[in-house]
Amino acid sequence: MSLWKRRLPLICTIVFGIMGFILQLVPAFKSFLDIQNQWMTILFGFAIVIGVASLTKYHFKKIRQKPEERIFSYITFSSLIVMAVATLFGMKAETGIFNALYKNLFDYVYVPLDATIFSLLAFYITSAAFRAFKASSWLSTLLLFAGGIVMLGRVAFGPLMVFGELTQWIMSVPTVAAMRGIKIGIGLGMMATSIKIILGIERSFLGGE
């Protein structure tokens, strides 16, 4: 069984890996590349089913373990079903009750919640700055120094304009150098990881026997 469970999937990885690499290099295959890109997304189409199954299983278990909190699981699933139905029937429709429901749910539930959780970052960045920007070692002093100057420089006025200029310099010289160095390293690391996967050196993603 090892052939079907382990060897063959590994061969699939190698074959498709080499195929992906070649498709990038040979322009003549461009029309096939367009097809292949479309084909790859099909593979993800049904994955959502196992996602939903996992979520359901998780909540069933939670209901069994903490029956007093089952209300939250009911909330999750009722909003899931309402949204799924509204979007399925309402997204492509121009009018109708499903379309109205979809639009309202999207505009007044989905978007505000998304934006609000995103905006929590305004608070978290403050507390992170308070905690991290301490002159406890020479390294964190540097972090404090650069961060403080840039923050001041962003709202600088009048005599504080010197911070504005310093900000410009920090953003265009040391930040560029640091980020570029890291980027190059990351690029090489990613390349090595990809090649390890294609060569079958790194295969933990395939699980065991």
Partner: peptide
């Protein structure tokens, strides 16, 4: 911005 700078300063 002033708030966070004061916080950092006091910290």
């Amino acid at each position: 911005h002033i708030y966070v700078i004061i916080l950092i300063l006091f910290g």
